[in-house]
Design a protein around this nucleic acid. Structure first.
Length: 262
DNA sequence: AATGGGATCAACCGCCTAACA
DNA sequence: CTGTTAGGCGGTTGATCCCAT
């Protein structure tokens, strides 16, 4: 884990937003040399940042395979379900959302989903409240083709039927493979209840999950048990890219090793 | 047009853990 | 065993955006 800093660190690390030039330097360096030692990356890349800052920037914004833009409905549901199970374990939740970072999910939860679910719970305790007309924002994610009431119904099913309430979870040492399957079952159930088929984006996500199922069934039970308990499985998810994404990354200039490395 | 307040999100902070000397 | 350090993670902050007034 530890590594030897090759040179003296910069006496004063720059803070604040990253400039395009800094982004380019970091991206170029990591793509060429990797990041086996983050503390040496800013020194070698000619950046006046600390290693942590570089790591964060790479993971959250520069790493290939990241999705940008609004969360799909399926992502909403996955986050909601996993948050119900795991709480604020953002890194673990992010492992199940290809192309999304823990920071992004955390922000999205705090700014969108948390409020939405609080309103839903309020609706459940105060059924007379007209949730749709008074509380639903007019700017739902563009990828959500279903209407608001359908979404609420699916979310209610998610929270109240398919996932045990948090009060019933006394201990949660490990999430077994069966739990992960149940999420897929949940997704199927929700999908059935909708008028619209999955979007292209969602099928991308689900197909990766399917890939993971196949991989998991070939692994030992131990590795399955590590699914949510802090293994490196997330790297596998987060490195998934479509062919178009791969070939458009870095203006088409890349090495296969770069992707294997990441 | 000005402005105040809420929403959003990139980035930092501080803590924890693991690895190493 | 102990101290030090890097990496990782969740919580929080602050700059910016957006919108209503």
């Amino acid at each position: 884990m530890r590594c030897k800093a090759s040179e003296k660190p910069y006496p004063k690390h720059k803070k604040g937003l990253w400039s395009p030039d800094e982004d380019q330097k970091l991206k170029d360096y990591v793509m060429n040399y990797g990041h086996s030692c983050w503390s040496s990356v800013p020194i070698n890349a000619g950046l006046q940042r600390n290693g942590k800052s570089c790591r964060l920037r790479w993971i959250n914004y520069l790493r290939p395979g990241l999705k940008r833009g609004q969360f799909s409905l399926q992502e909403d549901e996955t986050i909601s379900s996993l948050h119900r199970l795991l709480g604020n374990k953002w890194s673990q939740i992010a492992q199940h959302l290809p192309g999304r970072t823990d920071n992004e999910i955390k922000n999205y939860w705090n700014s969108h989903l948390k409020k939405r679910i609080e309103k839903l719970q309020h609706l459940q305790t105060n059924p007379k409240t007209d949730y749709i007309s008074t509380n639903m924002r007019s700017t739902e994610p563009s990828s959500s083709c279903i209407n608001a009431s359908s979404f609420i119904n699916s979310l209610s099913a998610d929270m109240n039927q398919l996932v045990p309430p948090a009060s019933q979870i006394t201990t949660l040492p490990k999430i077994l493979f069966a739990d992960w399957i149940s999420l897929d079952e949940l997704r199927k159930d929700i999908g059935k209840s909708r008028d619209q088929p999955f979007s292209h984006e969602s099928s991308y996500e689900v197909s990766h999950m399917h890939d993971y199922h196949e991989v998991s069934t070939q692994e030992s039970k131990d590795s399955q048990n590590c699914l949510i308990s802090g293994s490196n499985n997330g790297d596998m998810f987060q490195s998934h890219m479509t062919i178009d994404e791969i070939f458009s990354f870095n203006d088409g200039d890349f090495n296969l090793d770069d992707f294997i490395y990441m």
